[in-house]
């Protein structure tokens, strides 16, 4: 095939894309339609396609990408990472009683509350209808329950005004699981484990958090302190042939 001529940017049909970006408030500038401009259009579309339109959180597509990356990273680094799945309790009642517009306001308020409860490095996503998911990299296992509880309490205490003189509060249930360190697993298995905990939380009466139990550290503080005591006075191993790094002749 012969080498094609450079792409004439004016020939591109970008009306639909520009309309989408304009509506979402993404300015791409009025400058010349050059490669830099096209890059801004593409970046804007990527950003748009990774966000949830109602809440502005990451959407499910973006979340799954993030979770895949995190699962791979944890497999090699051994770092603790938590995934939380959160579901607004009895959300259907809100929609049925106050209408879908009220439901949307509640979703937006919960989204804001979630975002406020976590660190900038964490990814909060709207996973499905009234279901949210958060991936927390580098989150120590000892803090898992505390993080989930902080989120639950924050949402519980938030009052949402959905109409003149109409305020309501919702609760949520959360399930969480830590990625297995040093083991290549899949994001899918990881989510399944968090989902099982979410079911447990719902089952046990809602407005609660369940984190999959992790094996408590096998090594006690006493053992650790002895392990790192100064070695100066320790006896050397006896009964073994002397150990050196120098090669010995084969017998």
């Amino acid at each position: 095939m012969s080498r094609s001529a450079p792409l004439p940017l004016d020939a591109l049909q970008l009306d639909a894309a520009l309309q989408l970006l304009g509506r979402a408030g993404h300015a791409v500038g009025d400058g010349p339609r050059d490669a830099a401009w096209l890059q801004r259009v593409i970046d804007g579309l990527c950003e748009l396609s990774s966000r949830d339109a109602l809440t502005g959180l990451s959407n499910r597509r973006q979340f799954e990408l993030t979770l895949d990356r995190e699962a791979d990273r944890v497999a090699r680094s051994g770092e603790a990472a938590l995934v939380l799945l959160l579901d607004i309790d009895h959300f259907k009642r809100v929609n049925d009683t106050y209408g879908h517009a009220a439901g949307d306001l509640v979703l937006q308020a919960v989204a804001r509350a979630l975002q406020e409860c976590v660190r900038p490095m964490d990814t909060v996503a709207r996973y499905g209808g009234e279901e949210f998911a958060i991936v927390l990299p580098n989150c120590q296992t000892a803090f898992g329950q505390a993080v989930a509880e902080r989120i639950r309490r924050t949402v519980e205490s938030r009052v949402v005004t959905v109409g003149p003189g109409v305020s309501l509060a919702v609760t949520l249930s959360a399930g969480g699981a830590f990625a297995p360190p040093w083991v290549r697993s899949s994001a899918r298995l990881w989510m399944e484990r968090a989902d099982a905990q979410l079911y447990r939380a719902k089952d046990e009466g809602r407005n609660r958090t369940c984190i999959e139990p992790t094996a408590v550290s096998l090594v006690s503080a006493e053992e650790k302190s002895m392990l790192f005591a100064t070695s100066a006075s320790l006896p050397l191993l006896d009964g073994d042939p002397p150990v050196t790094a120098s090669p010995r002749e084969a017998p």
């Binding site: 392990l227 050397l236 050196t244």
Partner: peptide
């Protein structure tokens, strides 16, 4: 030869616990 210290330290905790 530094491995001896590491092994001895581990052995000591193993013997104790």
């Amino acid at each position: 030869g530094d491995g001896r210290g590491v092994a001895a330290q581990l052995q000591q905790v193993v013997d104790r616990f």
